[in-house]
Design a protein around this nucleic acid. Sequence first.
DNA 1: TCCTGGCACTCGCACGGGCCGAGTGCCAGA
DNA 2: TCTGGCACTCGGCCCGTGCGAGTGCCAGGA
Lengths: 338, 338
Amino acid sequence: MLSERRLEVLRAIVQDYVGTEEPVGSKALTERHKLGVSPATVRNDMAALEDEGYIAQPHTSAGRIPTDKGYRLFVDKLAGVKPLSVPERRAIQNFLDGAVDLDDVVGRTVRLLAQLTRQVAVVQYPSLTRSTVRHVELLALAPARLMLVLITDTGRVEQRLIDCQTPFGETSLADLRARLNSRIVGRRFTDVPQLVQDLPESFEQDDRATVSTVLSVLLETLVEETEERLMIGGTANLTRFGHDFPLTIRPVLEALEEHVVMLKLLGEAKDSGMTVRIGHENAHEGLTSTSVVTVGYGSGDEAVAKLGVVGPTRMDYPGTMGAVRAVARYVGQILAES
Amino acid sequence: MLSERRLEVLRAIVQDYVGTEEPVGSKALTERHKLGVSPATVRNDMAALEDEGYIAQPHTSAGRIPTDKGYRLFVDKLAGVKPLSVPERRAIQNFLDGAVDLDDVVGRTVRLLAQLTRQVAVVQYPSLTRSTVRHVELLALAPARLMLVLITDTGRVEQRLIDCQTPFGETSLADLRARLNSRIVGRRFTDVPQLVQDLPESFEQDDRATVSTVLSVLLETLVEETEERLMIGGTANLTRFGHDFPLTIRPVLEALEEHVVMLKLLGEAKDSGMTVRIGHENAHEGLTSTSVVTVGYGSGDEAVAKLGVVGPTRMDYPGTMGAVRAVARYVGQILAES
DNA sequence: TCCTGGCACTCGCACGGGCCGAGTGCCAGA
DNA sequence: TCTGGCACTCGGCCCGTGCGAGTGCCAGGA
């Protein structure tokens, strides 16, 4: 177990390195922090910390920098979450209050997070897995061509074109529309499949094929709808990443563009509370030199989606965590109001 | 006026520089291109080209690189549009054919363009100013609560909730729906206002207020719908930009994130035909070291939106223009089919 | 008039040596 | 267990040098 002072040394190293972006040596440490001991003592402590794998030397005769493991210890034991200042909180609220619809809320949140943390912001759209069906509409565009319109309780609308093999009569259409709506309106997406399972059987032989087609398109649409979307912003902040540019940020940009990757990343985080994944803790290869801070947000007590930031492992963890948490809270409030 | 050969020299310089990314000298030029003259002659030509401002030397005793003006001449007079190969065309078609809805079409287009050109792709959603109404649906969610669903010929769907002061009967609703559709289906957004102007008068006194409300929401939606959106992708390609990294790409990333800026940029381009803006020809400051190749696309002969790529001024113009044009054509086809 | 070969010149860049200094590990003493 | 001292390491910086690509100019020839 590390002594109290050694932890203090580690904290000082992390803080200094985050501030200066340069390896920190024993002498500089004693000058900037009131550790109450001499550089020589600090050197011994540093050697111990290095043995344990918390810090490392880029090259002999250079200062130390924290390892992923070092940051992990820092985040878990040494750092708190730095609350935002009152003006910052007020600014967040003002900025988010101006949003007019869901897209706008998410867009503003992304910009806000990116600006506050000076890092890349990732905001997931509220998930629809818990959504319900508000209405299903079926329109005949042509004798053998239907349009299916699905309206969700979150206000989203999806439409699909359906080509049928055989023409579908107006009365059959009205019938199907009515039966569909009476069965699934107000029900959750996940419940729909079994609710409509036996529907084709109750139709005339001639219409069954078409009904089945319509149902399969409907189920497909529901599945697609529950697919999660996200918005990303602040990528320009990647330019403040490090010195060895192209190599570092290229994979990050690539990962960010693959929304699937990012969604998986968010999915791996805890549903409630804040998650910090540091460097190699991130499964995706392109993100092993980044840290990801995420938190769930929601209109009630349940988290409906997640948001967070992606930045260099050398980031200001307390400040970032504070900003992420604060933004998540305010977004939750906004969603609850609307 | 520049002689034929000097133009040829300029073309050779542009081609070599685009290929190697290094200043090109007179000797290398004569070796790689069959100019039929000696390096000394080429040197004289280069001096003349430099006097005219078409090429420049990064430093004395280095080769020449084209200036923005040089690229401009190259694009206008010396370069054609390089058609894509048959396999490439087939790949485009296959890739785009898999799209299920408008978002998917745009998303696939962005990825395709980014991959083909290895640059940043920008695709504007089909603008609705020239769009026509495919269908309007009115649903009663509650006695005094309606939902308006607007479907456009480009496949976009918008919905709005409408709270009425007085309940609106099912028959009136069906009536309004039918009359609305018969008047505006197939008509342009811009024509809709005058087409529905006198509609309230033909309804019972009791229903007029509601009809007016519905109409005003519809018109509002049409206006909002014409607001333009865009999707951007392939930003990872920025890492292949140049040598002096952070400074170059930071402003570009910032400009790309400001969709307003990009929309303005697209708006400045010609509506029909291809537009190439080189370096300082771009009004936005962050993009003065980039070239932007854009072209309109649409389902018919009219362009409904634009797409293009943003890359370094040192780009393969013929190839890029070919890819942009081809993608625009196929996207147009896809939109026309659906 | 235009092209060509030749020649002297310029200058960026890569290479190598030497110096400096920050930082280290170790050790003996308090 | 902490401290001061000391020798050592090694990366970064500065500088001088040599190389070579590239240039401009000029005189001669088609």
